[in-house]
Design a protein around this nucleic acid. Sequence first.
DNA 1: ACCTGAACACCGTTCAAGT
DNA 2: ACCTGAACACCGTTCAAGT
Lengths: 226, 226
Amino acid sequence: MARPSTPLLTRERIRSAALAMVDRDGLDGLSMRRLAADLGVRAASLYGYLATKEELLTDLADEVLAGVDSSGFTAGWREGLTGWARSYREALAAHPNLVPFLAHSPGRRPQALRHADAVHGGLTGAGWPPRYATMIGASTKYLVVGAAMTSFSGGFADDVEVYVGRYPNLSQAHLLAGHEEIDRDSFELALTAFLDGLSRLYDQVARPGSEPGVRSGSEKADRSRT
Amino acid sequence: MARPSTPLLTRERIRSAALAMVDRDGLDGLSMRRLAADLGVRAASLYGYLATKEELLTDLADEVLAGVDSSGFTAGWREGLTGWARSYREALAAHPNLVPFLAHSPGRRPQALRHADAVHGGLTGAGWPPRYATMIGASTKYLVVGAAMTSFSGGFADDVEVYVGRYPNLSQAHLLAGHEEIDRDSFELALTAFLDGLSRLYDQVARPGSEPGVRSGSEKADRSRT
DNA sequence: ACCTGAACACCGTTCAAGT
DNA sequence: ACCTGAACACCGTTCAAGT
């Protein structure tokens, strides 16, 4: 078995087994040795395809983030931001164990830079000043990463006994245990409130001569532009 | 040196050296063996004071989160939420390398539960329905953890060459590198927009008979309560 | 009571050697 | 060209032994 006609490994086979292992056993559960065993091979063999474990994780990150979509800004900045945030969060929520790594070096991946560029362009194109565009992009990422991060960890314990009596306002907290629903609802609430707040701000700071925010109809611009 | 009159170690000395090590070398840079060496002792000695490395990290988490303040709800739900979010973020930003661990099991620490209880109580006491209180508490945590998580990782590369030409909308991105200022500003923008959005929602869903949100003067409740 | 040496079962990574 | 055995420098944790 030292020299098979068809290679036992491909980079894709490694990646797919690694992602399955992370999903199953957590980020700490992924080791090069266990992964190799899973693939019917010895650990040293992996290094013919990957330079380091870090490179493998970056591969996984790229695969997981492939579903992120920042193309919605043609329909307006609010629509673009919403689509980006939702697709981003869904991508992370599909592989929660990988989230701590994904947040590790976001600025260095080409995919992330492409999206950051699209978001920044979409916002400035809609009239947001560049500095606001930067902050709004960052803020949205805070929400997405925070939601994926916090919910991945389980949040509340399943053990009802812990809460009863001790923390009166949390007496129903056990109802949340393991429910992904509350996570998505909380995220949607946060996103909506955030965007509503931005819409109000938009009327104050947006440059004229660009398409206005489509849904910002309920407030009026009552301050002068700075 | 096998039996000193005064013990070489205390739990506090261990904790303080460990936190310094995490701050200096990162979460992966903390090992029980290196920590022991730092304390002039062998790794096995640490297990007289701590059951596991996990327990040590939990100790660090409690110390870092000691500065979080959820007592501001007497001045109104918006004030309480703002104070909690800011003190929470500051606590995390002071030890960014620990953030990935802090997000790991937030629901099981007594401190975190006390704060969660105070926030939930503060919100429901101000008229927010319990389900909203839960979601708002979660949302705020998303923002805080996301901000601490994303900014800890550095975000953008310092290398200007990477951006020029390739990503036109990010041509000024290098200006952000290493600047903590943009992180705090982005967080403040996100928090303000989020709270503005909540204020509007408050007028729609808040129970009567409670103190109203202090600063929610600019909108009117135009829908019936559900 | 407190610390240690030695061991156990793991890691990521390298590299000469096998076919 | 592809895989392996063996080694190196690490881990967290346990436990009998020293003083």
